[in-house]
Amino acid sequence: MVEKGATSPRERYRAQVRAEIKQHAWEQIASAGASALSLNAIAKQMGMSGPALYRYFANRDELITELIRDAYRSLADTVRAASTLQADLGVLAHALRRWALEDPQRYFLIYGTPVPGYHAPDDITLISGEIMSVLLRACAAATPDRPATSFDEHLESHRHWADESVPTAVMHKALSFWTRCHGVLSLELAGHFTGMGFDPGKLFEAELQDLLAR
């Protein structure tokens, strides 16, 4: 995917080369994992010298940041589009699953094992916050009044990640929804259900229906 904003021939060429570098990076990640990502190996694949490639990405972390940013932005756009069609937890859950199944390596880059020694910049947190904001809005319409739990009380003093107007019960619902959906997805994409004979999609749906019933 060529980067937006490239207008002049030189900018378009640079955007095309960066897109090709990222494609090779995804292929490396698929075969050896993000921690093994090598700019020198990508340069060799592209017939470039290491210093030439560094004109496009200064180091490994800058390339990883770009890949993570692209992944989060893709998911943020996906859940926002789903919520525009219907602000419903079921719709969001299935949009998340389709997105994850479409490209498991992209999913694992942002929700799998952290890359050793890598620290994401603040703008990545802001994009992931967009996803949670969509989820919180959907949960607000699906969370009945109920007695507070001990975890609700804990959340009261750990709610900096949500707007002050969001009820604690809604935050709890969003966290339960997010962790249970990701729990099934992570196990499915990692192949842990292989050979067990059941359809992971039906397990995902059962977990979702249980969440909605609560």
Rank of each mutant, 00 (worst) to 15 (best):
M1P: 09
S8K: 07
P9C: 11
R10D: 10
Y13G: 01
Y13H: 13
R14A: 13
Q16P: 00
V17G: 08
R18W: 08
E20H: 08
K22P: 05
Q23A: 14
H24G: 02
H24F: 14
W26C: 09
A32F: 01
A32V: 14
G33Y: 03
G33C: 05
S35C: 04
A36I: 01
L37T: 07
N40F: 00
I42N: 00
A52R: 11
R55G: 04
R55L: 11
R55Y: 12
N59W: 03
R60M: 07
E62A: 15
L63D: 14
E66G: 09
A71W: 00
Y72S: 03
S74T: 15
S74M: 12
V79A: 05
V79G: 02
A82M: 06
S83F: 03
T84N: 04
T84W: 06
Q86R: 15
D88H: 15
L89Y: 01
G90V: 06
G90T: 08
G90F: 09
L96M: 13
L96R: 07
L96K: 01
Y107P: 11
F108Q: 11
G112D: 08
G112E: 06
V115Q: 13
V115F: 08
G117R: 09
H119D: 09
A120R: 15
P121G: 10
D122H: 08
I124V: 11
I124C: 06
L126I: 10
L126Y: 06
I127T: 15
G129N: 03
E130G: 00
M132T: 12
L136K: 01
L136C: 09
L136R: 01
R137W: 05
A138S: 04
C139G: 04
C139Q: 04
A142N: 12
T143H: 05
P144A: 05
P144K: 06
T149N: 05
T149R: 02
T149D: 12
T149I: 05
S150L: 03
F151C: 07
H154I: 03
R159W: 00
W161P: 00
A162E: 03
A162N: 01
D163S: 14
S165L: 04
S165D: 11
V166A: 06
V166P: 13
P167C: 00
P167F: 05
M171G: 12
H172M: 06
S176H: 09
S176P: 02
L185Y: 01
L187D: 03
E188Q: 12
L189N: 06
G191N: 02
G191P: 11
G191A: 02
H192K: 14
M196T: 13
F198S: 13
D199T: 04
P200T: 05
G201K: 12
L203W: 14
F204D: 03
A206H: 10
L208P: 11
L208N: 10
L211H: 13
L212D: 07
R214M: 12
